[in-house]
Simulated scan of single mutants.
Amino acid sequence: MKTPADAEEPRWLTDEEQRTWQAYIQASMLLEDHLDRQLQRDAGMPHVYYGLLVKLSWAPHRRMRMTELAEAAKITRSRLSHAIARMEKDGWVRREDCTSDKRGQNAVLTDKGFKVLQETAPGHVAAVRMALFDRLAPEQIAQFADVCRIIADGLQPEGADLPWLR
């Protein structure tokens, strides 16, 4: 079955769009690498683990269903399970059976994990500030936020709630 997109010529990127796309790819890869190296050096954890700890710290009672945490972090359940297992060994999180669904599990941020997050946050915020916000004028920060919200809203599955984007 042909779709309208199959019948049309591809909408190739203009030269300006291509430059913008390549700049975005380069910046996002460099930023992720920068933040990952900072967190590995300062806390012995990859950026994705830090993000999981943050999401758990924001959750009611510092706990989230594993499936919801995987969706919020935009990682596979398999990758989440591996990350949680590693953080369990470090005592940062624990798993609990879900009381409302016997098949489900919750990830719970422990006091030790919360303390690690509190100790790690200042260095991470400094790295984010140096790599991103200190390079932008206030009006550019507002524009960047608007652009990121538009992109996230357009790509987010219908009905998903992203309170931190408001």
Rank of each mutant, 00 (worst) to 15 (best):
S100D: 14
G44K: 04
A152Q: 10
A121K: 05
D90C: 13
T99K: 06
R86G: 06
G91M: 00
V116T: 13
L132A: 13
S78Y: 08
F133A: 01
R95C: 06
A142T: 14
M64F: 04
Y24C: 12
M66N: 14
W58V: 02
R62A: 00
V108C: 00
R63N: 00
A152V: 11
G159S: 01
S100I: 11
Y24V: 15
Q26F: 11
W92Q: 07
G123W: 05
D90L: 15
F144R: 12
V54N: 04
P46I: 08
L53Y: 02
F114P: 01
A127T: 04
M29K: 09
Y50D: 00
T76Y: 01
Q22N: 14
H61I: 02
A127D: 10
E88N: 05
Y49H: 12
K102V: 06
N106D: 14
D90Y: 10
G51F: 06
I84H: 02
L35W: 09
A83E: 09
C148E: 08
R77G: 15
S28G: 07
W58H: 13
H47R: 11
N106M: 06
A59Q: 02
A85V: 04
G44P: 06
D146L: 14
A59E: 03
S81N: 15
G51E: 09
P46F: 01
P46Q: 05
T99Q: 10
L52Q: 07
M66W: 06
A127I: 00
I75N: 07
F133E: 02
H61V: 02
I75S: 07
Y50Q: 03
D134E: 15
H124V: 01
V125S: 11
Q156Y: 08
A137D: 12
I150R: 15
E68V: 08
R62C: 05
S28K: 14
H34Y: 15
Q26R: 11
H47D: 03
R103K: 14
D36M: 08
A152P: 01
R149L: 08
F144N: 09
A152Y: 11
R129M: 12
A126K: 13
F114W: 05
L80V: 05
I25P: 00
A43D: 00
Q38S: 11
A59R: 07
A73F: 08
R95T: 15
Q140A: 14
L53F: 02
V128D: 07
D33E: 11
M64W: 05
F133T: 07
A142Q: 10
L109H: 01
K112T: 14
E71Q: 13
A131V: 03
D146I: 08
E119D: 09
R77L: 08
L30I: 09
D146A: 15
Q26Y: 12
M29A: 12
S81T: 14
